[in-house]
Simulated scan of single mutants.
Amino acid sequence: MSHPAPRPPGRPAFLPVALAISTVLAAAGAVAWERTPARRARAAAARAERAGPSPHGRPLRPARLLSRGAQVAASRPGAAVLVDGVYRGDAWSGGFPTPAAPAWVAIRIGRGPSRVLLSWTSSHNHDYREQQYGAPVDYRIETSADSRDGRDGTWRTAVEARGNPVRSRAHALDFTGQRWVRLVVTALSPRVNEWGLFLDEIDVHDLSVGGDDVWVFLGDSIGAGVFDRAAAHRPSFADAIARAHPGYQPAMIDAGFCRARTWEVAERIDEVLALNPDARVFAIVLGANDGDLPRLRAGLERIVERVRAAGRIPVVARIPFQTRYGYDWVAQKNAVVDAVVAAQGLLPGPDLYAWFRDRPDRLADGLHPDAEGAVAMSRLWAEAAAPLYPPP
Results as ranks from 00 to 15, higher is better:
N334E: 02
D127Y: 03
D84R: 04
A91I: 04
C258F: 02
H233P: 02
R156T: 15
W329N: 10
G89Y: 00
W33I: 00
E372G: 12
G78A: 10
Y325K: 04
T262I: 07
H245P: 06
I253K: 01
G153W: 01
E301H: 12
G163D: 11
S189Q: 06
Q132K: 12
P246C: 11
R182Y: 09
G150M: 07
D206M: 04
E271M: 08
G291I: 10
N164I: 11
G196E: 01
F198I: 00
A279F: 01
V315R: 06
G219S: 09
A5D: 13
D228R: 12
A238Q: 04
R42N: 08
V315G: 11
G112W: 04
A279H: 00
R324E: 04
G299I: 02
S67H: 02
G134D: 09
D220Q: 13
A101R: 14
V316T: 08
D174N: 14
V181Q: 05
A386E: 13
P250W: 01
A342V: 12
G52H: 07
G211Y: 00
V214F: 06
P6E: 04
W155Q: 12
A5R: 13
W195E: 04
R302Y: 05
F217L: 10
R182A: 10
H368E: 13
E305P: 05
L286K: 01
V216R: 03
E49G: 14
P102V: 03
E264Y: 04
L363M: 10
S168G: 12
Y327P: 03
P8E: 11
D200Q: 07
P136K: 07
A28G: 15
L66E: 06
A18E: 11
L293P: 00
L82T: 00
R88Y: 05
D361Q: 15
E372F: 06
E271C: 01
E130C: 06
P294M: 08
V216N: 07
R42G: 09
V31C: 07
A41L: 07
V337P: 04
P360Y: 13
V341T: 14
L19C: 02
A5W: 01
A274W: 03
A339E: 15
R261H: 05
D292N: 15
E194W: 00
Q322H: 03
S378E: 15
V307K: 07
H126F: 15
W263D: 12
A240M: 06
A158D: 10
D358Q: 15
R76A: 15
E49L: 15
Y353Q: 06
V72G: 13
A45P: 07
D152Y: 05
T121R: 11
R268V: 01
R169G: 14
R151H: 12
L300E: 02
R359T: 12
R88D: 01
P246E: 09
R40T: 05
T98N: 05
V375I: 14
G366S: 11
A51I: 10
T176L: 08
R58P: 08
S236E: 10
V184M: 10
W120V: 03
E383Y: 07
S122L: 02
